[in-house]
């Protein structure tokens, strides 16, 4: 029962974490299940007096790497510094006021609304309508590179907005 509570408390966080690392939904499903089962098997090794999220993400990260190895796909290795920063963001979201994950990241909707229209559009089509970048580029009659750049800029603006609202960790130079 205790473990079920931990699963419930961390389901959305882990799903977001996995979706941040893989665009393959089937892989996200498998990795989610696998991460939780590994965590269950190794629960005795976990210091439950410390936050459970980072430990769970550590397992998930290793499984993601293993998954990419299996797929023989190159995922550029993320440095420890980047992984640490990613973890800080997730921990910051966890500590942000709100009873549920959605409440904690509620500011994301407001940040999306505050984006300039061309950036909001590209985010809307790429993410909320879940279109491949190429399709978004074709629809907007821009080059693939321009589309990627626009998405990148939109994500940076969203990160800045969420940081200002205290959802993301303050970070270093971006503060």
């Amino acid at each position: 029962m205790t473990f079920e509570i931990l699963v419930r408390e961390n389901t959305r966080m882990l799903t977001v974490f996995l979706r941040s690392r893989s665009n393959d939904e089937a892989a996200v499903d498998d990795l989610f299940q696998e991460t939780m089962l590994v965590a269950w098997r190794r629960l005795d090794d976990c210091d439950l007096s410390r936050p459970f999220g980072p430990w769970l993400r550590g397992i998930a990260h290793r499984l993601v790497l293993a998954h990419y190895r299996k797929q023989k796909r190159n995922l550029l290795p993320l440095s420890d510094e980047i992984l640490e920063m990613v973890d800080e963001h997730f921990e910051n979201i966890h500590a942000h006021p709100g009873d549920t994950w959605d409440e904690k990241i509620g500011a994301l909707h407001k940040c999306l609304e505050s984006l300039p229209e061309k950036h909001r559009t590209v985010v809307q089509e790429r993410y909320l309508e879940d279109e491949p970048v190429k399709c978004v580029a074709d629809r907007l009659c821009i080059s693939l590179e321009a589309c990627k750049k626009r998405l990148q800029r939109a994500r940076a603006m969203l990160a800045k907005c969420l940081r200002l609202k205290g959802v993301l960790a303050t970070g270093m130079k971006q503060a």
Binding site: R12, R19, E88, H89, Y127, L158, Q174
Partner: peptide, 23 residues
């Protein structure tokens, strides 16, 4: 280097949040 890492970390998290929202 730290700034570059921070940008990458931001991108990863925002991508996860947006992907999750859409999917």
């Amino acid at each position: 280097s730290e700034e570059s890492h921070q940008i990458t970390a931001d991108e990863i998290v925002i991508h996860g949040l947006l992907s999750d929202m859409g999917r």
